[in-house]
């Protein structure tokens, strides 16, 4: 089990302070959902935790080492990252795009047989095997999102950080992606997601980290962290957590106040 830990992070975006003094540690084997209103700093925090931005203050440590001291390639082998609605410049075949996920491992000579097997496993897991030959720019939003999840899985990273991986997925595929992230955590990976769907977060995550007011509003298992008070502060909504026989659900009753 390894840990990914943000210590006293001071993060900016576009020259504006977004988060101040945020500390949060994560362990492998868990799914953590990072929640918060638009502009609360979810993406900013996730990008810093992925080692892709330099914090204004504080540091991110992966196990015993500072993340920014790691060689970029080693970091990429250990931490997979799915950016929010990433641009895709060329009409590559889906299999080629998924193969890009092997770049941290492969040399310049292209994919080895082992790389090819990892690509196949990732495509099976994300259910995009049937799209292998398709041009990625012609896929529907949901198919594209799954292909990009497969791209990140292909690197078989110890940590998977995904920024809004559900954007564009219909409810059925969102549930399947949730099952996929769960099974990754059960196999020992650490999974960090930013999410907007509160019910999905409550069911999928072992832990939620709710951001707001430039810091952490709540941190813990969904059942105890997602109190009406926290939801009101974070989103300005009147909402209640409810037990159903399928798991937790969040009922949004209306705006707060």
């Amino acid at each position: 089990m390894t840990s990914l830990e943000g210590r006293n992070l001071h993060l900016q975006a576009g020259g504006k302070t977004i988060l101040e003094g945020v500390s949060a540690g994560f362990t492998t084997g868990q799914v953590t959902a990072i929640l918060g209103a638009n502009g609360a700093g979810k993406s900013t925090l996730l990008t810093a935790l992925a080692g892709l931005s330099v914090p204004k203050g504080g540091e991110v440590r992966l196990g015993e080492t500072a993340l920014l001291d790691l060689d970029p390639r080693t970091r990429a082998q250990r931490l997979g990252f799915i950016p929010q609605s990433p641009e895709i410049a060329w009409g590559l075949e889906v299999r080629t795009v998924v193969g890009l996920g092997r770049l941290p491992w492969s040399g310049g000579r292209g994919l080895s047989q082992a790389d090819g097997e990892a690509v196949d496993r990732a495509m099976d897991a994300a259910q995009v095997q049937h799209l292998a030959e398709r041009d990625i720019t012609t896929l529907s939003g949901g198919e594209r999102a799954r292909a990009l999840i497969a791209r990140a899985l292909a690197g078989e990273p110890e940590w998977l950080l995904a920024d809004e991986p559900y954007a564009g997925l219909d409810p059925r595929h969102a549930l399947e992606a949730a099952a996929l992230f769960r099974s990754l955590a059960e196999q020992g990976a650490g999974v960090l997601l930013t999410l907007h769907d509160l019910t999905l977060a409550a069911r999928l995550a072992d832990r939620v980290l709710v951001l707001g007011d430039g810091g952490v509003l709540a941190d813990g298992p969904p059942a105890s962290a997602l109190t009406p008070d926290v939801l009101a502060k974070a989103y300005g909504i009147d909402a209640r957590l409810r037990e159903t026989d399928q798991g937790l659900a969040v009922d949004i009753l209306g705006r707060w106040g």
């Binding site: 990008t47 992925a50 892709l52 060689d71 970029p72 390639r73 080693t74 970091r75 990429a76 082998q77 931490l79 997979g80 990252f81 950016p83 990433p86 641009e87 895709i88 410049a89 060329w90 590559l92 795009v97 890009l100 996920g101 770049l103 941290p104 310049g108 791209r151 690197g155």
Partner: peptide
Amino acid sequence: TRRALDALTLGEIGARSLGID
């Protein structure tokens, strides 16, 4: 630059997340 050029298909942040300097 060939690995980097391939990785840049996914944009700058995508390329950097794949360990490209």
